[in-house]
Design a protein around this nucleic acid. Structure first.
Lengths: 109, 109
DNA sequence: AACCTGTATCGTAATATTGCAATATTAAAA
DNA sequence: TTTTAATATTGCAATATTACGATACAGGTT
């Protein structure tokens, strides 16, 4: 098929899967890391940061925006991108909880 | 194309993207959450936990195993699955660093 | 107005993912 | 050995993703 059976999963599972899926590409990881590194709104130098054509980068930015991880706002004739603080902190919390919920067993196969 | 241009990204970016991609499906999130919940090796009840056919679940398990997130070991005529502690802790660290590296700007567009 | 610059969208080709029926494999049980 | 139970693999159809050239669009600049 290619489409996931979202009907039978919880909304939390679907949301978490959507965020991780959005992060599941080297280019999008690179975009996020760049936004984190400059720690500011980035206006227009994302394409030059990546080894990809401009339409491809635009598409990756769109997916990150759809997932809610980043925001884009018009700034003159270019567009400023930055991390979406609220969504970022929400998933920081969710990921922390997820990773912390693992308590290794003394005996495991 | 459909294939990512992995040649121009760092190994860290490719690895992180691979892990997030592996988590980027509701079924695989559900599998991980189940393994975390029972906090033990799970032998054979994963299929019945999910609203998917056995071959589909087997495929998702394979992807999680390929990503290194889970381990599977033969236990009689069934197979025990559990979280891979080393990989889990490695990415716990990486995710923590990633999420913590965000320092919101006072002024942002 | 015409032009440039930065970004988005469209269209399309190549490839990957998802899901499952059918089948194979493996190991214990009868 | 035959059967049974659990899991993996194969093969295939439907859909999604990735990438990019061509093009459209928007806002400045001249």
């Amino acid at each position: 098929m290619g489409a996931s059976k979202t009907d039978f999963f919880t909304q939390d599972q679907i949301d978490l899967a959507a965020i991780t899926k959005a992060l599941g590409h080297p280019a999008r990881i690179a975009i996020i890391q760049h936004l984190l590194k400059v720690n500011a709104c980035v206006c227009g130098d994302i394409v030059s940061e990546l080894p990809l054509a401009q339409p491809t980068v635009s598409q990756h930015l769109k997916e990150l925006k759809n997932a809610g991880l980043i925001k884009g706002s018009i700034e003159g004739n270019s567009i400023c991108y930055c991390i979406n603080e609220i969504v970022w902190n929400k998933y920081k919390e969710i990921f922390t909880t997820l990773f912390d919920s693992y308590l290794p067993k003394v005996k495991c196969c």
